[in-house]
């Protein structure tokens, strides 16, 4: 809904701010996946809302006071776009000037993400994986209801009649979205892109397919246990790269020792961990979507069973 528009708007804002990598992520996350999740939750929980019977004047006053104090605090901040601002002085000149020699990757964001701050990124991938596990634990259904093939066919034919234009257009588009995800994944060293963006784009292609062709069709193509396994494999790949570099005599996640040539080692390490990141992000997003959708479907079917 509005949140989707908001996501797309902030994405275009990030492009204006030179943050192309961030814009990529926000475009697919904010405008795509988060909107779908919100809508699914609203569909599960019902859209009606009780009219609140109290007036939150106190909250309004509190918010205004805090806002006023924050604005007062900005008076001492450096001006927008000021090159000598403290935030731009400490580590970033080193990233900008030395990373070409040290890492050899033109996209500075990828270099910092995967190499300089590799440990941090590893932690974040683990957080994403944990969130995925949490959603599975919270929303996982005990037993799967048997899939009735005839029923699926019925749904499919009825859906063929609706949304004909959307379905055909997206049928053409989905392969390109997937292809684009792979491009973003493997070209992340040179242009904007990388594992996080590619994972989200890949997942949104699958979600688009599931939305338009029905959950049961999508479930027949996408093997859920396999996806769950893949989300773990991604974390494993990332961690193993770190361990291998330790075994080769370097620090954890120090890719220079992976190959005789430090730059080639860095390239290899970044490629591998981006692969791990993309793997985990894509499969966690797909898992989250399917868990929410399964829940919705289970609710939908319950009344029919009790009749």
């Amino acid at each position: 809904m509005l949140l989707g528009v908001y996501g797309l708007l902030s994405a275009s804002f990030f492009v204006a701010m030179d943050a192309v990598d961030v814009a990529f992520t926000e475009a697919s996350v904010g405008a795509g996946i988060s909107t779908i999740l919100m809508l699914t939750t609203i569909a599960i929980t019902g859209r009606s809302e009780l009219a609140s019977h109290y007036r939150p004047t106190l909250a309004l006053i509190l918010v205004l006071i805090i806002g006023g104090l924050l604005i007062y605090g900005t008076m001492d901040m450096p001006y927008f776009g000021f090159a000598e601002a403290p935030a731009n002085l400490h580590v970033s000149p080193r990233y900008i000037h030395d990373s070409m020699q040290e890492i050899g990757v033109p996209n500075l964001v990828t270099a910092v993400l995967a190499s300089y701050r590799g440990f941090d990124t590893f932690g974040e991938v683990v957080v994403i994986f944990t969130a995925g596990v949490g959603v599975v634990v919270l929303l996982g259904l005990p037993g799967r209801r048997d899939e009735n093939d005839a029923e699926i066919e019925l749904i499919n034919t009825s859906m063929h009649e609706q949304h004909l234009v959307v379905r055909i257009v997206s049928k053409v588009l989905i392969p390109f979205i997937l292809l684009f995800a792979f491009y973003v994944q493997f070209h992340g060293d040179f242009g904007p892109g990388g594992g996080f963006q590619a994972g989200v784009i890949f997942a949104s292609a699958i979600i688009l397919y599931a939305l338009l062709f029905g959950l049961s069709t999508a479930r027949r193509i996408i093997n859920q246990p396999l996806v769950q396994l893949l989300s773990g494999v991604g974390v494993l790949v990332y961690g193993s790269v770190g361990l291998v570099s330790m075994l080769n005599g370097g620090n954890f996640l120090d890719y220079s020792v992976l190959s005789s040539d430090p730059i080639a080692g860095q390239h290899l390490g970044i490629l591998l961990i981006e692969l791990g990141v993309g793997c985990t992000v894509a499969s966690v997003m797909v898992i989250i979507f399917f868990k929410f959708a399964d829940r919705k479907e289970a609710l939908h079917y319950k009344p029919r069973e009790t009749k």
Partner: peptide
């Protein structure tokens, strides 16, 4: 060039954010 460090932090924060939002919605 613009400062790459905030980009890195936010790029991962967005994806972590959607994962935790999903957990909240669950």
């Amino acid at each position: 060039y613009s400062n790459p460090l905030p980009h890195v932090l936010i790029l991962t924060a967005i994806v972590v954010g959607i994962a935790t939002t999903a957990l909240g919605l669950a």
